[in-house]
């Protein structure tokens, strides 16, 4: 029993660490902020969950297990939120490589670099009056 649990825990830890490594790799290899955000979010969440599972298997005592569960829940709840907020700002500020993009249905044809843009706060509701002027 102890050996099996140890092997399972070690496998979880190694897989989680590998996923963290791929997150870093994706951060370096991907071309723009939005794709990097993908790399920083998904393998990361899975990796931290796996590491938490490994820790819960190996650590004795319920106190640590509950706290690891709490970390896992927080991580799955908060990672999408921070990813959304960062990528929303990134999209509105055009940190987006349109040459690598098949279709952009939210918006907007490529526009000239000098055009006025980015004058709305991040929380402003999307403008209703002029649907084509902004993201649509």
């Amino acid at each position: 029993m102890g050996v099996v649990a140890d092997v399972v825990a070690a496998t979880c830890l190694l897989l989680g660490s590998l996923l963290c490594l791929t997150a870093g790799l994706g951060l370096v290899r991907f071309p723009d902020v939005l794709t990097r955000m993908h790399a920083g979010t998904k393998p990361q969440v899975l990796g931290i969950l796996l590491i938490m599972v490994g820790g819960a298997i190996r650590l004795q005592g319920w106190s640590a297990t509950w706290m690891l569960l709490l970390v896992a829940v927080f991580q799955t709840l908060t990672a999408p939120i921070s990813a959304h907020m960062v990528s929303r700002v990134a999209y509105r500020r055009r940190h987006v490589r349109r040459d690598r993009m098949v279709v952009d249905e939210l918006g907007v044809a490529p526009r000239s670099p000098g055009e006025a843009r980015g004058d709305e706060p991040a929380d402003a509701a999307p403008s209703r009056g002029s649907p084509r002027a902004r993201e649509g």
Binding site: L18, L19, T22, A23, L25, G26, R29, F30, P31, L34, T35, H38, A39, K42, P43, V45, L46, G47, Y91, R100, M101, V102, V103, D104, E105, L106, G107, G136
Partner: peptide, 22 residues
């Protein structure tokens, strides 16, 4: 998702192209 994105980061040709959908 984790496995897929991880695979896309390590494979040689990387990601092809992205899109924005509504």
């Amino acid at each position: 998702a984790g496995a897929l994105v991880a695979w896309q980061t390590v494979r040689r040709r990387g990601i092809s192209s992205s899109a924005i959908l509504r």
